[in-house]
Amino acid sequence: MRISTIYRLGVKELWGLARDPALMILIAYAFTASIYIASKAMPETLSRASIAIVDEDRSPLSARLANAFYPPFFVPPEFIGQSEMDSRMDAGLDTFALDIPPNFQRDLLAGRSPTLQLNIDATRITQAFTGGGYIQSIVTSDIDEFLEGHRAETVLPVELTLRARFNQELNKGWFGAITEIVDAITMLSIVLSGAALIREREHGTIEHLLVMPVAPVEIMLAKIWAMGLVVLVAAGFSLLVVVQGLLDVPIQGSIALFMAGMALHLFATTCMGIFLATVAGSMPQFGLLMILVLLPLQMLSGAMTPRESMPEIIQMLMLAAPNTHFVILAQTVLFRGAGLAAVWPQLLGLLAIGAVLFFLALRRFRRFLS
Rank of each mutant, 00 (worst) to 15 (best):
301 S>H: 00
301 S>P: 02
301 S>E: 02
301 S>F: 00
301 S>N: 05
302 G>H: 00
302 G>E: 01
302 G>S: 06
302 G>I: 01
302 G>W: 00
303 A>R: 00
303 A>W: 01
303 A>M: 09
304 M>R: 11
304 M>H: 15
305 T>I: 07
305 T>P: 02
305 T>W: 03
305 T>M: 10
305 T>G: 04
306 P>G: 01
306 P>V: 10
306 P>Y: 04
307 R>I: 09
308 E>N: 11
308 E>S: 09
309 S>E: 10
309 S>W: 10
310 M>V: 02
310 M>N: 06
311 P>H: 14
311 P>R: 12
311 P>Y: 11
311 P>S: 09
311 P>N: 07
311 P>G: 09
312 E>T: 13
313 I>A: 13
313 I>P: 10
313 I>E: 08
315 Q>W: 02
315 Q>H: 13
315 Q>N: 05
315 Q>G: 06
315 Q>M: 06
315 Q>I: 08
315 Q>E: 03
316 M>S: 06
316 M>R: 01
317 L>D: 08
317 L>K: 11
317 L>T: 05
317 L>P: 01
317 L>Y: 01
317 L>E: 11
318 M>E: 00
319 L>C: 04
319 L>V: 15
319 L>A: 11
320 A>P: 07
320 A>V: 07
320 A>W: 11
321 A>E: 04
321 A>S: 10
321 A>W: 03
322 P>T: 01
323 N>D: 08
324 T>Q: 02
324 T>F: 02
324 T>W: 00
325 H>L: 07
325 H>A: 07
325 H>S: 12
325 H>N: 04
325 H>F: 08
325 H>I: 12
326 F>S: 03
327 V>D: 08
327 V>W: 02
327 V>K: 04
328 I>A: 03
328 I>D: 05
329 L>S: 01
329 L>K: 05
329 L>C: 02
330 A>S: 04
331 Q>K: 14
331 Q>V: 15
332 T>A: 13
332 T>K: 11
332 T>I: 03
332 T>Y: 14
333 V>P: 00
333 V>M: 03
334 L>V: 06
334 L>E: 00
334 L>G: 12
335 F>N: 15
335 F>P: 01
335 F>S: 10
335 F>W: 10
335 F>A: 03
336 R>G: 09
336 R>S: 11
337 G>F: 15
337 G>L: 14
337 G>D: 11
338 A>R: 07
339 G>F: 15
340 L>Q: 05
340 L>A: 13
340 L>M: 13
340 L>F: 11
341 A>E: 10
341 A>Q: 08
341 A>R: 15
341 A>L: 10
341 A>V: 07
341 A>K: 03
342 A>I: 05
342 A>D: 05
343 V>L: 13
343 V>A: 05
343 V>Q: 12
343 V>T: 15
343 V>R: 09
344 W>Q: 12
344 W>R: 10
344 W>F: 14
344 W>V: 15
345 P>S: 06
345 P>T: 12
346 Q>S: 10
346 Q>N: 13
346 Q>Y: 06
346 Q>L: 00
347 L>F: 07
347 L>C: 14
347 L>R: 03
348 L>C: 14
348 L>D: 12
348 L>M: 06
349 G>P: 12
349 G>R: 08
350 L>A: 08
350 L>V: 07
350 L>W: 13
351 L>W: 14
